[in-house]
């Protein structure tokens, strides 16, 4: 695994994102983008459907990304990427074609087209950065919004469970499926690198947990901490599933044992989106954690 120092050096060299981009302070998707594109050494073409990343690139001539980007409409990113990947194949180019999409663009409006690209096993690395709601439009509920979270369209907290896209991609027998967390950059870096090299030629899916300070109502300084607690409470298990065989990733591995997990309350109390929610929902959220692990264990 890449060391912190190496990671920093690569990021300085690739400079996927310039200073002065339009991301909010504490934005974890922006960091995820930097880590991911650094892992690809900048040799990527990125397709971005409507999402926060459409905006944070910068406006007009104040453009701040050092990779070619095709901005496109919500549901169209996977087929656009398919078209690009097919042309690169004809030209004999090894450049990685990345779909860089939010959770709304993936779990909701873009799900059909992603599923289509997965079925065709297009040569695409699909990255779903998961800030658990429509944050670009001001925190509305998406299919990936977790139970309990208050959004502007679930003002009393969402009652139902989140749609688990990584597991749905496993159900579609995608050759490489992984979860990542912006608070664990080395793990994220390794997963992007592995997906891009070992599984090149196939459809690959990585879901990155990316805290959003304004949407989640968390302090800017806490956005890395929230990610760490998501891991340590067992709330966000990190894993890789290769051809359906699952392995928990190092930062998460020991939380397979429920006794080692931190209390969920630690995770909830520093996020405004979970403030004053119904204790009954909190109880269900606690049960959701073990429910998730118990399903994932079946694929080990």
């Amino acid at each position: 695994m890449v060391s912190t120092k190496e990671l920093v050096n690569i990021e300085l060299e690739v400079k996927a994102i310039e200073k002065g981009n339009l991301a909010c302070p504490g934005c974890q998707l922006n960091l995820s983008f930097k880590h991911a594109l650094s892992a690809l050494k900048g040799d990527a073409i990125v397709v971005v459907p409507a999402c926060c990343t459409s905006v944070i690139q910068g406006a007009g001539q104040g453009y701040g990304m050092h990779v070619p980007i095709f901005n496109t409409a919500f549901a169209s990113a996977p087929p656009v990427a398919s078209g690009i990947a097919r042309k690169l194949k004809r030209d004999g180019k090894k450049t990685t074609v990345v779909v860089w999409a939010g959770d709304g663009g993936t779990a909701d409006i873009g799900f059909g087209s992603m599923s289509g690209a997965a079925e065709r096993d297009e040569n695409i690395l699909y990255v779903m950065y998961d800030n658990q709601g429509y944050q670009n439009t001001g925190n509305q509920k998406s299919g990936a919004t977790p139970r309990g979270a208050k959004t502007s369209t679930t003002p009393h907290g969402k009652k139902s469970r989140r749609k688990d896209i990584a597991r749905m991609m496993m159900a579609q027998e995608v050759s490489y499926v992984a979860t990542a967390n912006a608070s664990y950059p080395q793990d994220l870096f390794a997963k992007i690198e592995r997906a891009a090299t070992e599984f090149a030629g196939h459809f690959r899916f990585i879901q990155i947990y990316s805290p959003c300070p304004p949407g989640w109502n968390i302090d800017t300084k806490d956005s890395v901490l929230v990610g760490e607690l998501a891991n340590n409470t067992g709330y966000w298990p990190l894993y890789e599933a290769v051809n359906g065989k699952l392995e928990f990733s190092r930062p998460s591995r020991r939380f397979n044992d429920p006794a080692k997990r931190k209390p969920l309350a630690d995770y909830l109390k520093i996020q405004g989106r979970f403030r004053n929610i119904d204790p009954e929902i909190v109880k269900q959220m606690e049960e959701d954690i073990e429910h998730e692990w118990s399903i994932l264990r079946k694929f080990m």
């Binding site: 169209s76 087929p79 690009i84 087209s113």
Partner: peptide, 20 residues
């Protein structure tokens, strides 16, 4: 590319065209 919808059909040729 035998896509899953017309929306994807236009998107697919857009990607191909943008790639040259």
């Amino acid at each position: 590319i035998a896509v899953e919808s017309e929306h994807a059909a236009m998107s697919g040729v857009m990607g191909g065209s943008a790639a040259g």
